[in-house]
Design a protein around this nucleic acid. Structure first.
Lengths: 240, 240
DNA sequence: TAGTGGTCTAGACCACTGT
DNA sequence: CAGTGGTCTAGACCACTAG
């Protein structure tokens, strides 16, 4: 299937911005000019620019034009976006990530999990505790709960590689969204045992609910790492 | 100035979702029906629905319809969104927030600040250290750097209330965006002195660059709080 | 005043879903 | 098959910015 026109236009404009054909802090051509150049209607150009503006690359001002914004000074290549659905294996590369499965069991949902996953008391839930390693080094301690009915036939070998890969490519399920809470916290016994945390070392934790496009909750999880191993980043574009 | 039609339509649909006129986990009327009801074109309805979908309230699927999604189980009224531009006084209410100004000085930009704020070596920069209190209790230790040329005539009395209020309403400047990094970290001497942190208590820090719609960087800051006083939340809608 | 982006329309074709 | 949302067009009017 061919790409939508507005996507193709957006890709080209993005490329021109990144390659400085449209230099930083200058105006790019107006929407009518771009529409003529690409042979599309102005609405299509506008839709392309809307997307690029949401990414923080440009700023449009009515009556004035469309600016190219500069690079973000504190952004680095290693940043971990707090709004990303790809799992660790996709983010870091499958060859760099390995997983120790510390616990893999099934039980009926507790009251707490019934509320968090929006399921009944008789729904079985996977309880998965994994230590994710980066280049062999302990990196993230991930505690995941998933309803069995949404993710059938989970196996140890899937847990050793990538659950998300299984969900997307085998089960053909699509994530609709996620809600995440980022905490700092004290180390637990598990952090000390598996992340090699000292008794007082700060831990950064992401607690999240993930749901499918159908609205069903597929995951409740916590991901914990040593304070100096990872931060999370958020790009926030103002749209008032 | 009147609200845009698509905004009015979005407001009405949002209201119907929240009041369960369009119940959770059901389909809402199709776009053509809504267009007729509101007396607008289908494109306008679609634009309204696009916005609501980005907020995580609905999910649209081509060929099927538009679902109302359920409430988010781990979301609470106290959550602090990591993507919000309103300062603490707006978030918590001006009457609940007070500020101790610990340091307020001006100096030429250091190398580090020149890079972070994208300014020259001879540009003066405000150095502002404030303890923000909530209901009198120490809450957040905020260290802010702003170029003097963008925020002239800052005074102690402005620092005691709200800098953002001054920037928006007096200087008539608009924020274009922000890039934030969320860290866990060890307490510093300042945290111990002002937040009453113990020597080993985890601290949650947000480091951010804020820029204007013109692309100029107006702020580099860090905001630190005790690990059990505040978390940050992110709503992430998948759009693939 | 001329040029910009924002909004809006009526109608069209498409890919996809369910029955 | 009929119905859904996604895309796209050509043209129009508006509010805003600049010189």
């Amino acid at each position: 299937m061919a790409k939508a026109k507005y996507q193709a236009v957006a890709d080209e404009i993005r490329k021109r911005i990144l390659s400085k054909i449209y230099p930083t802090k200058t105006l790019i051509p107006d929407q009518n000019t771009l529409a003529k150049e690409f042979g599309v209607s102005r609405m299509t150009v506008k839709k392309a620019l809307d997307g690029i503006a949401r990414e923080g690359l440009i700023y449009k001002q009515s009556g004035l034009g469309t600016y190219v914004l500069g690079d973000i000074s504190i952004k680095t290549a290693n940043d971990s976006p707090a709004d990303a659905f790809n799992g660790l294996t996709e983010q870091q590369g499958a060859e760099r990530v390995t997983s120790d499965v510390i616990d893999f069991s099934v039980a009926f949902a507790t009251k707490d999990l019934q509320a968090k996953l929006d399921i009944g008391a008789n729904d079985p839930v996977y309880n998965i505790l994994r230590l994710r390693r980066l280049e062999g080094e302990p990196f993230i301690l991930e505690h995941t709960f998933m309803p069995v009915k949404l993710v059938p036939d989970l196996t140890l070998s899937i847990l050793k590689s990538s659950i998300y890969d299984y969900i997307h490519h085998e089960l053909k399920l699509k994530f609709g969204g996620a809600y995440r809470k980022i905490h700092a916290s004290l180390p637990t016994e598990l952090d000390i045992a598996h992340l090699n945390a000292t008794a007082t070392e700060p831990i950064l934790e992401v607690e999240q609910i993930v749901w499918l496009t159908t609205g069903q909750n597929i995951e409740y999880s916590t991901s914990r790492n040593l304070f100096n191993k990872r931060s999370y980043t958020v790009l926030d574009i103002n749209n008032i």
